[in-house]
Write a protein that binds this DNA or RNA. Structure first.
Lengths: 198, 198, 198, 198
DNA sequence: GATGAATGAGGTTTCATTCAT
DNA sequence: TATGAATGAAACCTCATTCAT
């Protein structure tokens, strides 16, 4: 028990180090040595816990998207109106300049890989499925409430909602200006509302 | 003059090879040897025309975004209504499964780099500026025509429009299903229309 | 005493594991982890009983050659004619396809090491001395019986006898065909007989 | 032409370096760096000419056995009696202390690998086939001359002849005494003669 | 006694870059 | 201009060995 916990913590420690390392230096510059340095362990430890560098990255994507999914779902769950849930979803996605920057820097790399590798694509798909679940919940509730367009189907609307969120955060990231974060969040919320509204 | 032209062609040949190579194998697997092989030249030639591998990539991003900007502007220019221009813009952006896939595979890599490196960010910014120019043209014309919301400002609307386009194409790419390309284009067009409409 | 016995058994267990591991996977692929796995003990145990990997190998060669020497001497001892002893010796050396294969795979590695390292060479020399003892016994008895050439001296004949045995078993091993084992044994016996006969 | 020759020479240079390196330090201690050092080239060059370390070793075995086969065949070809050819064969095999030591040190390693890997086994088999060709030639001629036993078949006799040669050279190598080289050669010749004689 | 987490030296391999031809 | 042989830094990975528990 204790041992398992300990090793599980070390895995998290390494994943976290890999995340910071990736986010700050980019994929090219990330070596196992860098990750080990960030995790303050020796190089061998990374290989002791992960079969290969690739395995670290795969697990990192799972871990990251899992954490974000959980956070978004939790935020949505405590709201009880369609608009409240939507705002909570987008607030949760726009977690803050530092968080969004570090995540999207890494996520763009993963999307690039996912476009070629089934392993990454499947993990991303689980993330998308979670997002689609939230969008569906919001849409159906809004339609019940009469605030959202009844002609919309979850299958069509959900990808567009995530497209707007990711698209806006990429635009914000490329602008390179933290102070615009709130503006982009507002624009994103407004756009999604318009798309869903009657 | 002749020499310059010749060398210019060879540069294009190498850039095109780099693009195909990057798109098919991903950044990790692309070496100067791969690029040279695709370009059917020797490895030394790549270094003769480009100072470094990095220089190839930088110029590739410029070349790619330049070509797309030009194509989009040309498509929009021949239309004379706001909706016609918007449809032309989106049609041009959704050039086709093969083209979108190869481009976005590479572009996601570049966005990731752009989030860290000013060199790439500036090139991407020029691309965004071009996109914003188109959006502005479309929006102002639509406002004149009375079909678009007069409260929208180009500065706020343009990033959202590009966000929706890129966001939708990323969603399509991750879905991994070519046959959904038309659906995503339609969804994209519908979403942009809703965002701009009165 | 009890402790010593117990630890002695564990040593044997590890040596046996090292032998199987070496024989099956070859020297390159044998790690202390592999040996530990075969011995069904933890990696630390191997180091607890042996100072180093090298120490395992050295002791393995001693153990192996010791066992074979003992077996050969025992087989020869129960025979009472020169030809009977010789046949018993060769029968014992050609113990069977599985045994010969696993032993010679490992032994060839050791011979290679012995050609460079005095430690291994000395162990092998003890094995050769044992073989020479058997050959001498056989030769002298055969000369007494009048069936072997009286001009032969043990010093000259013994290495040749072992050369033929090892040489034939190597030829058999390289042929890779178990069903030829009996043929090679016969050829070996015939050759040794011719060499020794009047 | 020139280029090909040049590169072919460099390959030989590397193979020769690998041989000396292997012979002197043993398989474990041989690294690509060692080989590069012996060949007086940079480490990268080895990989430029050979796909992997394994490829160097495979080609080394081919090269070594090919050279020895050629030498033995050439030596036998200039003799015209069975005994002359046999003596030439064995003289050629017992090339000298330095040569035999360096070759058998390496060859024992290769035999060990050949006992597990088909690649090495096939190369060794070609060597054995060449040896068998010589033995067959010698045996048939000797049978014609009436000096060798007419009941012997090449298929049975050839492996035994090579077994005696290899076995004797291994015995000599393990003895570690150069001055015994001639004695072992004599013993070997005598043993083969006895085996073949009427 | 026994374990296995941790270390880090050192191995093979890749590849951007240089440079003689 | 064009080539590709050569370089060597640096990557990933393995594994003997140590040591706290």
């Amino acid at each position: 028990m204790v041992k398992y916990k300990k090793s599980d913590e070390k895995r998290k420690q390494i994943l976290s180090a890999a995340f910071r390392s990736l986010s700050e230096h980019g994929y090219d510059s990330v070596t196992l040595q860098t990750i080990a340095d960030y995790a303050e362990v020796s190089k061998g430890v990374v290989h002791y816990y992960f079969a290969s560098k690739e395995a670290v990255l795969v697990e990192l994507l799972e871990w990251l998207t899992g954490k974000i999914s959980a956070r978004e779902r939790a935020a949505v769950a405590v709201q009880h109106t369609a608009e409240g849930k939507l705002a909570a979803y987008i607030d949760s996605a726009f977690a803050g300049p530092a968080q969004n920057r570090s995540f999207y820097r890494v996520y763009l790399d993963f999307l690039s890989r996912a476009s070629r590798s089934p392993v990454y694509r499947e993990i991303n798909q689980r993330f998308y499925d979670s997002c689609a679940g939230i969008s569906t919940e919001v849409l159906l509730l809004g339609q019940q409430e009469g605030v959202f367009n009844k002609e919309l189907t979850p299958g069509r609307a959900a990808p567009v909602i995530r497209a707007i969120i990711d698209g806006c955060l990429i635009q914000w990231l490329m602008a390179g200006r933290d102070e615009l974060h709130a503006d982009f969040k507002d624009s994103c919320y407004a756009a999604v509302m318009k798309v869903l509204s009657v």
